[in-house]
Amino acid sequence: MVRTPLTPQERERGERLGALLRQARGDRSMVEVAAQAGLSSETLRKIETGRAPTPAFFTVVALAAAVGLRLDEVAAHCVIAEPEVQALLSA
């Protein structure tokens, strides 16, 4: 199966997610957060660096819980959308 190349918007969304997770992780080690989320530290490293810009939904859920983020916060930070959509996410 051939995977469709990611769009620039998808890559940017992945970079935003990675930056948000890095910031929320704070002083905690990558190994600690990955273990709490039930992931390998390599998977977390790839997400944080943008090398895995489209992680599975439940991976994002587990990471958000591990670093204390709500999913609406993650969506508002990562979604690149028209101002109307952003307003809905912020409400």
Rank of each mutant, 00 (worst) to 15 (best):
V31W: 05
Q9P: 01
T4L: 11
E73S: 00
E32I: 01
V85N: 10
A81G: 09
R13M: 12
L21H: 02
E42P: 00
L89T: 01
A24Q: 08
S41N: 09
P83E: 13
R25Y: 02
G26P: 00
I47S: 05
C78L: 04
E73Q: 15
L69R: 05
V33E: 00
R45T: 01
D27F: 02
R22T: 14
E48Y: 06
S29Y: 01
V85I: 14
R3V: 14
A35L: 04
R16P: 03
V79R: 11
R3D: 14
S29M: 11
V31M: 09
A75C: 10
T59A: 11
L71C: 05
Q36L: 11
C78P: 07
A64W: 00
A24S: 11
F57A: 07
P83A: 14
E15W: 08
A65Q: 13
L39Q: 06
E15F: 03
E32R: 07
L17C: 06
F57R: 08
R28Q: 15
L69M: 04
S90D: 15
T49M: 06
L89F: 02
L21N: 08
H77I: 02
L21T: 09
K46H: 10
V74G: 08
P55H: 06
S40Y: 01
E42Q: 12
F58G: 03
Q23A: 15
R45P: 03
L89N: 00
A65G: 04
A37D: 05
A56P: 00
P8V: 10
R3E: 15
G18F: 06
R51N: 07
D72I: 08
G26N: 08
T7S: 15
H77G: 06
L69I: 05
V33P: 06
D27M: 08
M30I: 05
G50H: 03
L44Q: 04
K46F: 05
L89M: 10
A87I: 10
T54I: 10
T49S: 15
H77Q: 12
S29W: 08
A81K: 08
L39V: 05
D27N: 12
E42K: 09
E15K: 09
T4P: 00
V33N: 00
D72V: 03
V85G: 04
L17F: 00
